[in-house]
Design a protein around this nucleic acid. Structure first.
Ligand SMILES: [Mn+2]
Ligand SMILES: [Mn+2]
Ligand SMILES: [Zn+2]
Ligand SMILES: [Zn+2]
Lengths: 141, 141
DNA sequence: TTTTCAAAAGAGAATAATTCTCATATAATA
DNA sequence: TATTATATGAGAATTATTCTCTTTTGAAAA
């Protein structure tokens, strides 16, 4: 992902292009696997030592509400962030903080079909996310 | 749910039976719909005005790690608690904090069958939870 | 029933993640 | 290049939760 691409993403969303926003979006993409705000700050401060914590949070919020990133909730008291914005699910390690993406269109269709037929009384579904909890049998590549 | 039943649940798990534990477990059951620690404290303090905040959190932890309640994660920075311990999913309102249970064994079987055949590379599934996000079309009864 | 004591509760301080406030800087536009 | 709305930086504030330490208590043992 080149910086020009990141820049364009921001422009498309009518967000002002700032070095901070570029750095943060770049960091989330590069770090992949759902960094915390702290991970992002640590990573960014190498090249960008003066960025303020509050700025990072504000940028993360702006990016998330403009659908350039997603927030990923965890069992613990830390938000994590995701550069993958297409519909996907998550694999959560039951013994560490590791979170990996799980994209599966066959599954999405299966669920869609299931709920189309079955429906949920008094509820209009907008989105379905799976939290798949378990153990990874290989360490991260 | 009578107090004797609650008492027995605690005894089964070899937890000391204390008025605080009884009150908290009773509160979660009565309040249903996933109260926060604060909701629980407010409710309990009517009959039990001196209970300490830290006690509530410690009891909630003890109950959760003994599988008498479940923790329910949310988008926001507050944990919520669930007296329903059987396997179930959650309906999350996209415009409020309302969370309702969704129990569906047909769905569980469908998913189990799906992943049994398909599998996820390098991952051993232990549990699957759905976060079903949308809008309730009726206000709470 | 009283004694004993590990475990639990209470009080309040501490922590951690996040949000807020407000002065200053800057990107986009004219 | 000047203008201005918006973003950033700095640090304080907030919020949910956890910790530390002292006192109390439930329940097993005597
Ligand atoms: Mn649940
Ligand atoms: Mn917090
Ligand atoms: Zn993801
Ligand atoms: Zn539930």
């Amino acid at each position: 992902m080149k910086i020009t691409e990141i820049r364009n993403k921001l422009i498309e969303k009518e967000l002002k292009v700032t070095p901070q926003r570029i750095a943060i979006l770049e960091a989330i993409i590069k770090l992949h696997n759902h960094p915390t705000a702290e991970n992002i700050i640590d990573y960014i401060r190498n090249n960008h030592p003066n960025i303020a914590t509050a700025t990072v949070y504000k940028v993360l919020d702006a990016l998330a509400s403009n659908e350039l990133i997603k927030k990923v909730k965890t069992e613990r008291d830390v938000m994590r962030y995701d550069a993958v914005i297409e519909n996907h699910h998550h694999l959560y390690c039951s013994e560490s903080d590791r979170i990996e993406d799980y994209t599966d269109n066959e599954l999405n269709e299966l669920l869609e079909k299931y709920f189309e037929t079955k429906g949920i009384p008094d509820f209009k579904i907008e989105d379905i996310k799976l939290q798949i909890i378990g153990k990874f049998t290989k360490t991260k590549k």
